[in-house]
Design a binder for these strands. Structure first.
Length: 216
DNA sequence: GGTAGGATGGGCT
DNA sequence: GCCCATCCTACCC
C-alpha cells in the first residue's frame, strides 16, 4: 500500500536542468574567514551530494579560543584534527551512538573553527530523501535537524575530511539569490557557553529545526 | 498542540 | 565511567 502521508502534501520534486542545476561551488576563500562570517554566509547556499540537494537554512558557529562548546577546545586529537586543518573541508562526527553531524571547516589552515549545518530546505532528490527518512511525515521534517540532514543527504563519517569545494559533496551558489533576514539565538543542545549567540537561521523559513532557544 | 524517556556507541579523563 | 553539537515513540492534553 501507499505511504502513510498523502502525496499532495509534498512539494513537486525539483528536477533541475540538464547538467548542474546550481551555481558554482564556493571557493576556498569563502571558508578562509572568521567562523561567524562563514556561518552567516552559508545561509541560502546549496548543499549538494549527488542527486540530493538542499538550501542551508540554519547553522551554528563553533569557535576557537575560549569556546568550550567546540570540540576543538580540547586541542588536536584524532577526531578534531580536521577542524585545525585547511578550510573548505567537511568535519563529520558521530553523536549519541546513532547520528552523524556535518560541519564545514572555516578559518585559515592551522586555526580552529567550524560551522555546524543544522537544517536544509530540500530542493532536489526529494524522493530519495523520503526513502532515506522514513520517519519524516512532512517535507519540513526531512532535514530540519543536524542528524536528520545527514541521513537525508547520505552523509557519513566516510566524508570526514572531504574537500567540499569540489567533488560529490559540495556547497554551491543558489540558482537565484533571494533576500533573507538572519535570526540569531544561542546554540542548541550544549551546556558550555550556552548563552553565546552563535546559532543563525533564515527568519520565517519553515525548514529550520524545531529547537526553540530564547530569541536574542 | 505538547513533553518525557529511551536508544546507542565513540571519545576522552 | 561519564559525557554527549540527537531523534523517535508513546502518551497526554
Amino acid at each position: 500500500m501507499g505511504p502513510s502521508y498523502t502525496l499532495h502534501r509534498w512539494p513537486v520534486p525539483y528536477h533541475g536542468s540538464v547538467g548542474n542545476p546550481f551555481g558554482p561551488a564556493l571557493a576556498r576563500a569563502f571558508y578562509e574567514r572568521p567562523t561567524i562570517d562563514v556561518a552567516r554566509g552559508l545561509l541560502g547556499k546549496v548543499l549538494v551530494h549527488g542527486p540530493a540537494a538542499g538550501i542551508i537554512v540554519e547553522t551554528e558557529a563553533y569557535l576557537g579560543g575560549d569556546d568550550l562548546a567546540a570540540h576543538s577546545s580540547r586541542g588536536v586529537t584524532g577526531r578534531t584534527r580536521v577542524i585545525f586543518g585547511p578550510p573548505g573541508h567537511a568535519y563529520v562526527y558521530f553523536i549519541y551512538g546513532m547520528y552523524e553531524c556535518l560541519n564545514l571547516v572555516a578559518e585559515p589552515d592551522g586555526k580552529p573553527g567550524c560551522v555546524l549545518i543544522r537544517a536544509l530546505e530540500p530542493v532536489a532528490g526529494i524522493e530519495l530523501m523520503r526513502q532515506r527518512r522514513a520517519a519524516a511525515r512532512k517535507p519540513q521534517d526531512l532535514a530540519n535537524g543536524p542528524g536528520k540532514l545527514t541521513l537525508a543527504m547520505a552523509i557519513t563519517r566516510a566524508h570526514n575530511g572531504a574537500d567540499v569545494t569540489r567533488g560529490a559533496l559540495t556547497v554551491r551558489e543558489p540558482r537565484e539569490r533571494r533576500a533573507i533576514e538572519i535570526a540569531v539565538t544561542p546554540r542548541v543542545g550544549i551546556t558550555q557557553c550556552a548563552d553565546w549567540p552563535l546559532r543563525f537561521f533564515i527568519r520565517g523559513n519553515r525548514f529550520v529545526s524545531p529547537a526553540k532557544p530564547v530569541l536574542t
